[in-house]
């Protein structure tokens, strides 16, 4: 579930529901195209609703870009598990992955739009978060 364009910030979508994560990724692809590295993950390790650190780490790897990765999450556990995953990354990557405080679907589309224009990670995060501002 990815297309690699080094240079643009990667987007990772994390939802408790794999269907929501995949659907949000579909929206990003349709609205923004494939100019940004994109990956999604959802569900616990047994395939039920939830999130899991291994899945998030894999999604970060898939969407990896030298410009960094912005993660969009839905509810509490998705955020906590994403922060855990970021801490488990190799040290040189850790500072280049940010979890955004934004609604998962709208945030993903806006973050990807910002990224597709070549904006840096901080700007991508800011744009997504303006939804809550």
């Amino acid at each position: 579930m990815s297309s690699l364009r080094p240079g643009n910030v990667g987007i990772v979508i994390v939802s408790h529901s794999p269907k929501i994560a995949e659907g949000a990724a579909d929206m990003v692809r349709q609205m923004v195209g494939d100019a940004v590295p994109l990956a999604w993950t959802g569900g616990d390790v047994d395939g039920g609703l939830g999130t899991n650190v291994a899945g998030i780490l894999e999604a970060i790897e898939t969407a990896w870009s030298p410009a960094g990765v912005a993660i969009l999450v839905d509810l509490g556990g998705a955020e906590t598990n994403s922060e855990m995953a970021v801490e488990m990354l190799p040290e040189d990557r850790r500072a280049r992955v940010l979890v955004c405080n934004a609604p998962v679907v709208e945030g993903a589309v806006i973050a990807a739009t910002e990224s597709s224009g070549g904006s840096p990670l901080a700007a991508v995060k800011r744009s997504a978060e303006e939804f809550y501002a």
């Binding site: 616990d44 390790v45 047994d46 039920g48 939830g50 999130t51 899991n52 650190v53 291994a54 509490g76 556990g77 955020e79 906590t80 598990n81 922060e83 855990m84």
Partner: peptide, 15 residues
């Protein structure tokens, strides 16, 4: 626990 629990309690109890 971090890898398998799945909810927010995984990272919390695991940590």
């Amino acid at each position: 626990l971090v890898m398998k629990v799945g909810g927010a309690s995984g990272p919390l109890v695991g940590t």
